[in-house]
Nucleic acid binder design. Sequence first.
DNA 1: ATGGTGGTAGAACCA
Length: 267
Amino acid sequence: MRLATWNVNSIRTRADRVAAFLQRHDVDVLALQETKCRDDQFPEMVFGALGYEVAHVGHSQWNGVAILSRVGLDDVTTGFAGMPSWSAKEGVAPSAEARALGATCGGVRVWSLYVPNGRTLEDPHYAYKLEWLAALRGTAAGWLAEDPAAQVALVGDWNIAPQDDDVWDMSVFSRSTHVSAPERAAFQAVVDAGYADVVRPHAPGPGVYTYWDYTQLRFPRREGMRIDFVLGSPALAARVDRAFIDREERKGKGASDHAPVVVDLAE
DNA sequence: ATGGTGGTAGAACCA
C-alpha cells in the first residue's frame, strides 16, 4: 500500500496536478491539507473518476483537510478526541478550525493533520498550537495504550522543523515559530508516545525539505524547511520499506509551496 | 527595510 501526504494549497487550483500525481505514483491513500474550500466545493468527481473515495472537512476558505482512498474509507472522524477548538475560546476564527480528519483505509488508521501555524511566538495562536499538539499527543498515546498493535499514521503539515538541519539557515529563524524549543518538545512528545518519523531514515538531511516559500526564490536557491511528516505507530513503522519526498512536484508553474511525501507499506 | 508570491476573496488576511 502506498500512502502519501501533501499540503496542496488549494485543491480547486491544483486538482489536475493532484490527479496526475496519484496516477504517476500509483498512490492508494492521499492525505491533503490546506484544501481551502468548503465541502460542497471539493472537486470530488475528478477523483471519483479515478476510483478514489473522498472525505473532506473544510470550515471556510482557510485550511481544510481531506483523505482520498481507493482501498476503503471507513469510520471517518472529524477532529480527534480532546482537540481544542479555537472559535470556542475566541469567537469566530475560521483560520484556526477543522484541522484533523481520521479514516480507516486498507486497515490503517490515517489522520490528515494541519497543525496550527502559530503565526508568531507572541500570538495567541502559538499557545493554541502547543495546546493542540499536547491534546494530539495525549489522544494518540491512548490509542496505543488501548491497542499496541494498532496501525496508525499521523500525517500532514506539522508546521514544525524538529531539527536544525530541517531549515536552510537557523539564524533566519532565531525569533520565529516552527523551530522554538516548546514546538520541538511538543513534536518529540508525539514521537515519544510511540510514533516514529518513518520518512527521515529513507530521506536523510541536511538539505532535504518539504516546503519552500513562494517568495525570494527559495526553491531554486534550495532554501526550504522540512515540516511535513508521516509519523507511524510501531506496527505501521515496521511495514515501511520505502519513502521519499517528491521534490519534482514543487517545480514549474502552478506548484504548491509544499512537496508530497510518499511512504510504501509492505503487505 | 519592506517586499518578495500565491491562495481565498472581491478588501484584506493568511501562509
